[in-house]
Amino acid sequence: MTAARASLSAGTARRVRPVLVGLAVLVVLGALLQLAVGAAPLDLAHAVGCLVSPDPTCEPSERYILTALRLPRTLGAMVVGAGLAVSGCAMQGLFRNPLADPSLVGVSSGAALGAGLAIVLGRALPVLPGGLTQPVFAFFGGLVATWIVHALARVRGQTSVVGLLLAGIAVSALASAAIGLLGYLADDRQLRDLSLWLLGGLGGITHSVGLILVPLVGLSGVLLWRRARELDALLLGEAEAFHLGVDVERLRRRVITEVALAVGVCVAFTGIIGFVGLVVPHLLRGLVGPRHRVLIPAAALGGAALLLFADAAARTMLAPAELPVGILTSLLGAPVFLALLARVRASEFA
């Protein structure tokens, strides 16, 4: 039995390692592409030389573009993409459903409402130090929305898939209506900021934002990765996980809180960037298997790579104008979601 298990583990490692290496390579290529492309395109070798060495041929304007604009944006794309993908992976494991996604079960909409409150009603709200007002409101908005959806989806101690989707739609609609009301109450500047922010984009990420974004999303990702064994047990069913020593209710509370932290902080600074948390874990599950100890790091790499390439495309498709990356991810992710929904529906009626 031990020999068979060791052989299975070795076979899994041989299958997974190339996938992880390939995803890491994609992240590196996407980061280099982010540094080179934009309204002012730069030669890649020249851009890297300006960053890593005191290149005398590097103009001050080029150095400013790279260090003040593109480098923080590149890091932000990696962190936000990884955070959204890991959050989607954890949600799918928690609900044992490939349709679970922060944007589909109300987390993103709740976080958007919280951040919208901070934008429009900022003068009447307590100001937190270090620019934390908007992330804190987004976090609590996502947390409250997720708990409401989860409570509505529970039927006789079980999470209903239909109830999950319907509750997510209802909470998202309510949050959207509240955001619309905030837009009605906002002045011209606040309305413009709110409208552009809701489309989703990485243009607002700066060095100071990165100091908030990186540690909070990183903390959430590490905590979710530590739940890997419990999430694996939960895939067998709640009763089976309980008999294996998993406190299901405590696990559910912790995962929901950690997902709300990651998504809330990401949404606070980038707006709603949909479908990253749905598409990436679903595609990678078929490549690396369902074990969360491997799937969560793979999702982090895949989400980072996807958002890096998507943002590079969004910055160049309509140059010198910039297409909000949230629009592009929705255009790419919506067909995948429809195909996944059709597959789930076919399996339920088979």
Rank of each mutant, 00 (worst) to 15 (best):
V263I: 11
V263W: 06
V263M: 10
G264D: 09
V265K: 08
C266E: 01
V267H: 03
V267Q: 01
A268D: 09
A268C: 08
A268E: 07
A268N: 03
F269D: 05
F269P: 04
F269C: 02
T270C: 15
T270N: 08
T270M: 09
T270K: 02
I272A: 12
I272P: 00
I272L: 15
I273K: 00
G274K: 01
F275Y: 14
F275C: 03
F275L: 10
F275Q: 05
V276M: 03
V276W: 00
G277A: 12
G277R: 07
L278T: 03
L278N: 02
V279T: 15
V280Y: 01
V280M: 08
V280N: 00
P281W: 01
P281H: 04
H282N: 14
H282P: 07
H282S: 10
L283D: 02
L283S: 13
L284H: 06
L284W: 13
L284P: 06
L284F: 13
R285C: 12
R285P: 13
R285Q: 15
R285A: 11
G286A: 14
G286K: 13
G286S: 12
V288S: 09
G289P: 09
G289R: 08
G289A: 13
R291I: 08
R291D: 15
R291M: 12
R291E: 14
H292Y: 15
H292V: 13
R293H: 11
R293Q: 13
R293W: 12
R293V: 14
V294G: 03
V294P: 00
V294K: 00
V294L: 15
L295Y: 03
L295A: 03
L295E: 03
L295I: 12
L295T: 02
L295P: 01
I296Q: 01
P297A: 10
P297D: 04
P297R: 03
P297N: 08
P297W: 02
P297S: 12
A298Q: 09
A298F: 11
A298K: 05
L301E: 08
G302I: 08
G302N: 11
G303Y: 06
G303R: 07
G303L: 02
A305W: 01
A305C: 09
L307D: 05
L307F: 12
L308F: 04
L308P: 08
L308D: 04
F309E: 06
A310H: 00
A310D: 03
A310C: 15
